[in-house]
Design a protein around this nucleic acid. Structure first.
Length: 345
DNA sequence: AAACGCCGCAACCGCCGAGGT
DNA sequence: AACCTCGGCGGTTGCGGCGTT
């Protein structure tokens, strides 16, 4: 048997809602509450399909909807969560209070996705699109600085975008709510990402998203607590030590782990000293008040002017270029193949 | 000023899963 | 077990606004 339509289509209005219709819907829901969408139009005196009423309410009329442009932090959260969850817009929306899945989906398709494509990043996999890589620039960079040539990068086995770092941030968030012991164990086994991905996909309840520290954004308080809980002080202090360097020299041991990608690195005047690329997350953090920390790598709140769940609607005055620059930073952090967490910690 | 094209977003469509009978 | 309803989800469409020529 074929599926019956949710309502009789004939005679029902379609298209944009009028203010009168909105008023009727709001009044009805205020009196009776949402739900029973099938009968709602009739009871509310609307010539609309119940589905249409539900969509209008959930995507537009609901009082807790936050209007206005997305903040840096919201965008960052969307990118991180999309890297983990894919096109699970409702799941992503559940971690962005006041935002609807439809709004996030539209924003992704019209802004973020295009920007990623411009940057040569596959918006589905969050990995660089090899078909768009400028091989000549890669090769010229390599000629200028042979030390930064990483063949595995050229072959695509080591994505420029580091979705694992993004996954790590969100996975740690999940583990905070579950069990932290496996995290440390997995780090030591150097199998962290696979196991974290499995944990990550466990759905959270909607009411878990409502407190600031439980949202997708990884707060500094959380990271500090996690560091304590997981004996990650070594890692954190080591990274912070690097960030506190007063000159532009990069500690040799760190330099071994965080390589410049040839496609984005500049030719160094000194071919024997790899130069941190200007746009890298590392460089951004390195330059931002010399206050680089592990938590900032994970949450990157450096350019987020307001808390994600600020009660006031944030009108973002930043340009697309600024966001693109910021976005590129978000994607250019990589952990080289063979990176040993044990050794680093 | 008109035509054209692009962009953003609200709304629609079709499918799916859960739950009830 | 089969059928049916309902709510929810992701993909897509179409329209209005805006910028450019």
């Amino acid at each position: 048997m074929g599926r019956t339509p949710c309502c009789e289509k004939n005679g029902l209005k379609k298209g944009p809602w009028t203010p009168e219709e909105d008023l009727k819907l709001i009044n009805h829901i205020q009196l009776h509450g949402p739900g029973n969408w099938r009968n709602l139009p009739k009871n509310a005196g609307l010539q609309r399909c119940g589905k249409s009423c539900r969509l209008r309410w959930t995507n537009y009329l609901r009082p807790d909807i936050k209007r206005g442009r997305f903040s840096f932090e919201e965008e960052e959260t969307i990118i991180q969560l999309h890297g983990i969850l894919g096109n699970k817009w409702s799941s992503i929306a559940a971690r962005l209070p006041g935002r609807t899945d439809n709004e996030i989906k539209n924003y992704w398709n019209t802004h973020i996705r295009k920007r990623m494509l411009r940057m040569g990043i596959d918006p589905v996999t969050h990995a660089p699109r090899l078909d768009l890589l400028d091989l000549s620039s890669i090769l010229s960079s390599s000629v200028c600085n042979p030390t930064i040539l990483n063949v595995s990068n050229l072959l695509g086995s080591q994505p420029l975008v580091n979705p694992e770092m993004l996954k790590l941030a969100d996975a740690i968030l999940s583990l905070k709510q579950e069990n932290l012991v496996p995290l440390a164990r997995n780090i030591q086994e150097n199998q962290i990402f696979n196991s974290l991905m499995q944990k990550q996909v466990q759905p959270l309840q909607p009411n878990q998203y409502q407190t600031p520290l439980q949202e997708g954004v990884f707060s500094s308080e959380m990271s500090n607590q996690l560091v304590q809980d997981n004996n990650l002080e070594g890692l954190c202090s080591k990274v912070e030590t690097y960030g506190n360097c007063s000159d532009n020299s990069i500690p040799s041991d760190l330099n071994e782990h965080f390589v410049c990608h040839p496609n984005h690195g500049n030719c160094s005047s000194n071919p024997t000293v790899p130069e941190i690329q200007e746009n890298s997350v590392f460089q951004s953090l390195y330059n931002s008040n010399q206050n680089f920390s592990f938590s900032s790598v994970v949450s990157t709140p450096i350019s987020s002017p307001t808390p994600i769940n600020s009660s006031s609607t944030f009108i973002n005055s930043s340009t697309e270029d600024e966001k693109e620059s910021y976005c590129s930073n978000l994607f250019k952090f990589e952990i080289p193949e063979g990176f040993d967490f044990d050794e680093f910690m």
